[in-house]
């Protein structure tokens, strides 16, 4: 297999014109529309701008200093950042408990497993914007079916204005986000469970290991790589989330900034603030976010690898 693959790759020596003809369309589009803007954003953050793209001059790291010293950033950036972290932590815990539990139980079923997989994946296909608006309607204090149901069940004290109250808005956002994405870890963990040879569990049973111990000692360690992958993807998703908070609380993260996240702050600075040096400051914010995501993802991969080595 490996031999044919090596033989297959690069077996043909093609003339330069053919190479150019095959590669150039994709490369030109990619370089002009994606690569060039991405590279220039990093540079934008080091300059001062006036009213859009009029260059004033190089100002070192002043745009970054502004983010940490001037209003409204001193107040809004840490708050938004904490919300992003809360979304990450909440999603991580729920996905790896509920998601893993569902995947393990589905794995023990026969063909009906497919039906559940499809049902659990449906919310993932609906756009985050539709999901946000749908739950706004469902949780509405006036005509919302959720509160009507709670009242019918005699739980009037729970019929709250879920998204209107700053203390419940963020937890609800986390729950709705988990509701939407859970199919993804369920499918991935299911596939990984399918890859564990049944002989391993049989051997452990013969040795007298009970269900929970088998799970802790055999299944869980073998799932570590997938759990790690899901966690890193969750981290990236939670740090970049925009659409669901926008649907719930608009660009300001209402109520009272309770659902504000970094991408909403970035959107406000870039397109709604009207500040003269908006380009410099928002590029600095995007750069910080990029560095944090990159650092977090690399750290996550390193932790994952260390864990794998410890277990093997």
């Amino acid at each position: 297999m490996a031999r044919t693959a090596r033989k297959a790759s690069g077996v043909q020596r093609a003339p330069a014109t053919a190479v150019l003809l095959f590669i150039l369309p994709a490369f030109a589009l990619f370089a002009v529309v994606l690569l060039y803007p991405m590279v220039s954003a990093l540079g934008y953050s080091l300059f001062e701008w006036r009213g859009g793209t009029n260059l004033v001059g190089f100002n070192w790291f002043h745009n970054f200093v502004v983010l940490f010293t001037e209003q409204p950033f001193v107040e809004q950036m840490p708050r938004a950042f904490l919300h992003n972290l809360a979304i990450f932590a909440g999603t991580l815990v729920l996905q790896n408990s509920i998601g893993l539990f569902l995947a393990v139980q589905l794995h023990r079923l026969g063909r009906i497993r497919r039906v559940f997989q499809v049902l659990y994946t449906t919310p993932y296909l609906v756009s985050p914007l539709v999901v946000g608006y749908l739950w706004t309607l469902l949780l509405s204090p006036t005509f919302g079916p959720v509160n009507a149901g709670l009242q019918a069940a005699g739980l009037d004290s729970l019929a709250l204005s879920w998204l209107g109250d700053p203390t419940t808005a963020l937890p609800v956002l986390i729950l709705v986000s988990v509701w939407q994405w859970i199919g993804f870890p369920v499918l991935l963990y299911g596939a990984a469970l399918g890859g564990i040879p049944p002989e391993l569990n049989d051997a452990a049973s013969v040795d007298g290991a009970t269900g929970w111990r088998r799970f802790r000692r055999i299944t869980l360690p073998l799932l570590t790589p997938v759990i790690g992958t899901v966690s890193i993807l969750t981290f990236i998703g939670a740090m970049e989330t925009f659409t669901l908070p926008y649907a719930f609380g608009g660009a300001t993260g209402s109520p009272a900034g309770a659902t504000d996240v970094l991408s909403l702050l970035f959107f406000r600075v870039s397109f709604e603030s009207g500040a003269s040096n908006a380009l410099g400051v928002s590029s600095a914010l995007a750069t910080l976010l990029f560095l944090f995501i990159l650092g977090g993802a690399l750290l996550g991969r390193r932790l994952l690898r260390a864990q794998e080595e410890r277990l093997s």
């Binding site: 803007p37 220039s40 954003a41 859009g52 925009f242 995007a286 976010l289 990029f290």
Partner: peptide
Amino acid sequence: IPFMLAILPMFYL
């Protein structure tokens, strides 16, 4: 590379 980094330069492009 995260998409958000490219939004403003893309907008000006």
